[in-house]
Every structure is written in structure tokens, then in C-alpha cells.
């Protein structure tokens, strides 16, 4: 067997990744196009970005979206972490199948179904639709993604550290906050970020569950896109892509550093045992 990548592998990687990235790169480049026609290049310009700052509707929508994403990601991360703890640590209990079903189903559930069903719930209980209904809807589906992310870290977790602490008389809750939580923190941060971007992205569920005064950025983008491609929308999209890309890169650097630190700490703990 030949070691190292073959030509076939390299070519398929190159084609695959250009397919993944070319559309986004083109979108970013054309957001700096001076002309209004998006397909004809007319020189570099940042005029569409300054035009955005005048667009109050868009700015309002961005503010709503950020607030929804922040609150829903935070609650979803807490609930998702709890759900992951239940799935990994609580073994068999009454209703476990239903529980794990409810955690995994939203991962693949078509958004139109989730959106419609939540809306009908809010109408049935006469809950005023708007900011909070969108937030609750986002918590519900993103907590399941958060649970899966935290769960994948928990299954590889070395429990002996926690057990050692409890053998030394540390109460379980304290052991959780002092030992388990710091160790699974990178996964929790990743879960929060995933929940945040899922909420930032969502068009379908937000469209169903929203009410007056709670128009989110994807809803604004969608209604603009239906009328055609415009450089302003390219500019909004570029900003969103940039924010997410920077966020993900920073987070991956932080988690890498933390992971290295954790491994060193675990080695030291093992050496001192």
C-alpha cells in the first residue's frame, strides 16, 4: 500500500473544497462591486456597506436577531447540557426511549413541521406571538444540537477524577461544578456557538412563530432575495459570514489551547496519584 495521499485523493479534495467555498467567495467578492448589476464587475467599492448603515429596517432586524440568538443559545446550552448528562449518565429510567427520541428527532425534523407545530401551540394557549415565541422555538430545536455536541464529549470523559474528588468527601454537585464542568467546557462553548449560529440562520421556524415587531434578519434577507440579487444583500451576507468565520476560528484556537492544558493537567493528576 502506498503511504500518503494519492493523486486521486488530492484532486477530489481540491474539487470538493472549491465546490464548497467558491460560491461563498464569489458572494463576498461581489459585495465589493461598485456597480448595481451583481454579475458585471465595475470596480471595488464599499458603497453597499455604507448603504447598510442607513437601512434602519435591516439594523432593527439585526438587533432582534442577535438578542434572540444570545438568549436562545444560552438557555439551549443549559438544557442541552442537562439532556446530555441524562443520556450519558442516567442509564435506564422510565421514559428513556421517549426522551432520547425527543432529543434526536429535532435534528432531522423538517423545519416546516417544527415551525407549524410550535405556532399552533402558541395559538392554542393564546401566547402573544413575537420576540419570546421565536426565542422559545429556537431554544427547542437548538438544545438538541447542543445536547449532541456535549454528549460526544461526555462519553469520552474520564470519570476517575470525579470519583477521586468524591472519595475525598467532595459533594457530588460541587464535584460537578469544580471538575466535570471545567473539563467539558470546550464542548459547552462549542454547543453555545452552534446554538447561536443556528438561531442566527433560521428562516423557516422564525417565520412561523414570529409576530409583530419581531422580524429577524433572515426574514428580511429572504423577502429581499425573492425580489432578486442585490449588492446590499451581498454585503449583509458577507458581514454575517465574516462574523461567523472569525468566531469559529477564535473558538477553535481557544479550545485547542484548553485541550492541551487539560491534557497536561490530567497527566499531572495521573502522575501525582
Amino acid at each position: 500500500m502506498r503511504r500518503g495521499p494519492s493523486w486521486f485523493n488530492i484532486v477530489s479534495l481540491l474539487i470538493g473544497f472549491s465546490f464548497l467555498y467558491l460560491p461563498i467567495v464569489l458572494l463576498v467578492i461581489y459585495s465589493f462591486n461598485a456597480g448595481r448589476n451583481v454579475a458585471v464587475w465595475a470596480g471595488w467599492s464599499t458603497r453597499w456597506y455604507s448603504a447598510l448603515l442607513q437601512n434602519q429596517q435591516l439594523l432593527d432586524a439585526a438587533w432582534v436577531t442577535l438578542r434572540v440568538a444570545f438568549i436562545s443559545a444560552s438557555v439551549a446550552t443549559v438544557l442541552g447540557t442537562l439532556a446530555a448528562l441524562v443520556l450519558v449518565r442516567q442509564g435506564r429510567f422510565h421514559g428513556r426511549t421517549l426522551f432520547s427520541g425527543m432529543v434526536y428527532a429535532p435534528l432531522v425534523m423538517p423545519e416546516v413541521i417544527t415551525g407549524l407545530s410550535l405556532l399552533l401551540l402558541f395559538v392554542a394557549i393564546n401566547f402573544d406571538r413575537g420576540f419570546w415565541t421565536v426565542t422559545i422555538a429556537h431554544i427547542t430545536f437548538s438544545m438538541c444540537f447542543a445536547a449532541v455536541v456535549v454528549q460526544s464529549r461526555l462519553v469520552t470523559f474520564d470519570r476517575s477524577l470525579e470519583e477521586a474528588a468524591m472519595d475525598l468527601g467532595c459533594p457530588p454537585a460541587k464535584a460537578f461544578f469544580l471538575i466535570t464542568l471545567p473539563i467539558i467546557m470546550p464542548a459547552i462553548i462549542a454547543a453555545w456557538m452552534l446554538a447561536f449560529t443556528l438561531s442566527l440562520d433560521d428562516l423557516v421556524i422564525a417565520s412561523f412563530t414570529t409576530g409583530p415587531g419581531a422580524t429577524t434578519l433572515p426574514m428580511r434577507i429572504y423577502s429581499a432575495v425573492r425580489l432578486g440579487v442585490t449588492p446590499e444583500i451581498n454585503a449583509v451576507c458577507t458581514i454575517l459570514v465574516g462574523v461567523v468565520a472569525v468566531g469559529v476560528l477564535v473558538a477553535s484556537v481557544i479550545t485547542k489551547r484548553q485541550e492541551a492544558e487539560r491534557q497536561r493537567a490530567e497527566r499531572m493528576a495521573a502522575a501525582n496519584r
Partner: peptide, 13 residues
């Protein structure tokens, strides 16, 4: 991680 809507939109252009 980048928006689904944006990635679909990119293809329109």
C-alpha cells in the same frame, strides 16, 4: 456554520 440561506442565495447569483 455559515447561514444556510446565504449559501442558497449565493447560487442565485
Amino acid at each position: 456554520w455559515t447561514s444556510f440561506l446565504i449559501r442558497v442565495y449565493a447560487w442565485i447569483g
